[in-house]
Simulated assay, not measured.
Amino acid sequence: MTPADLSRTVLHAVRRAVDEDALRAPVPARVRVERTRPGGSGDYACAVALQLAGPAGLPARGVAEILRERVVGAPGIGRVEITGPGFLNFTIDAPADGAARVREVLAQGIRYGWGAECAGQVHQLHHRREVRAAVLAGAVAKLLRAQGALVRVTCEEAPDPDWARLGVTVDAYGHPPTPLTEVRPVPAGAMAGELLERLGADATRWGLLRAAGHDRAALGDELLVQGEGNGLFHVRYAHARARALTREGARLGLTGAYGAESDAPALHAALADHPGVLAAAARHRAPDRLARHLETVANAFFDFHDTCPPLPVGDEKPSAAHRSRLALAEAAGTVLAGGLSLLGISAPEHL
């Protein structure tokens, strides 16, 4: 269970309590959960009971107990405690969650992490005739649609014909009269044709999206270096390596099936965080959050790959541990492919 999953679970409990008239208070738009501080109880803590106590006219611990009754037993939650003046503390059912998460990734494929964070919302993204603004607006539109929103993208003027080679589409151009959200990052300082000629489509998109919109985009030749210092190469190499493991496993008659728990906490955490990252990237219109997260997944994958080889080494015989590791590697590759797809960047099977 990710922090975003837990937040939605607690929010659902609040709604249930209000619907059942057990709690008379306004339902908040969202519920915040945080990692428990050192010395605290459980994995996550939530102060929503303290927030609702005043409007409900009840002690915070009483509100916490009402919510606890509606959260206990939810999938992925092992234990719920009430501490201090009324904090809810959650212990996540980690072993079952790790296996369930890998299976969820493999079942959902590259759409893993898509959700309903923005369901029912309608957005019109409007940008000037500038390549970074166009690429950013298109990536934000993909992220919002992956969270259930309806999105229209418009430009101040007729699009640059070279934008099509970057996968950019515009629904209309001109000055629409309807309410809109302007996308105005720091300009790239170059035209699309120039960037495409020098870097190609994938490196250009990564360079334009990797930096936050208020920062200048790094668009130098380092985007073409095949080395660990190049985030784009590192992410795509991790994806290609994960796919190569699947192919080699098939050649050995070994298929991924997550059963035995793998000692890869960083990779498990990165996969679990993916839905929350997608939701936050859409909510804040920040594809750079996704790009940085993909680098985190890639780093965790290589650490796992080096310490827990997914395939037998030397005279080792294939085992349940290898099948679990292979499934985890496949899940990592799937998350990387899905994230790159939302950024409009290809994920080659071979590098």
Rank of each mutant, 00 (worst) to 15 (best):
E104L: 14
L143M: 12
T169D: 12
A53Q: 07
V277E: 05
A281H: 05
G227S: 15
I77P: 03
R8G: 05
P75Q: 08
G229D: 13
G344V: 04
T178F: 14
P309S: 08
E261Q: 14
T9F: 11
L23F: 10
R30V: 13
R15P: 00
H268N: 02
R15A: 13
E330I: 00
A218H: 14
P177Y: 01
Y237T: 08
L196E: 02
G115M: 05
R37N: 03
A238G: 04
A257L: 14
V313Y: 07
M1E: 03
G39A: 01
C308S: 15
P179C: 07
L11P: 05
Q124T: 15
A192H: 03
G276E: 07
G113N: 01
A133D: 12
A96I: 03
R129I: 08
A100I: 02
F87G: 02
R145Q: 14
A64P: 07
A190I: 02
R251V: 12
P177V: 13
G193E: 01
H234L: 14
H234W: 15
E295H: 06
Q124A: 13
H12N: 14
P75T: 06
R241S: 10
I82P: 02
L11D: 04
V27Q: 09
A64F: 05
R283H: 12
Y44W: 15
F302L: 12
A47P: 05
T83D: 04
L267K: 05
A74R: 14
L326S: 09
V135G: 06
R8F: 02
A164R: 15
Q147D: 06
A244Y: 02
L328W: 03
A218T: 13
T307C: 09
V27D: 09
V225C: 12
A286Q: 11
L232D: 06
E316C: 10
R198F: 04
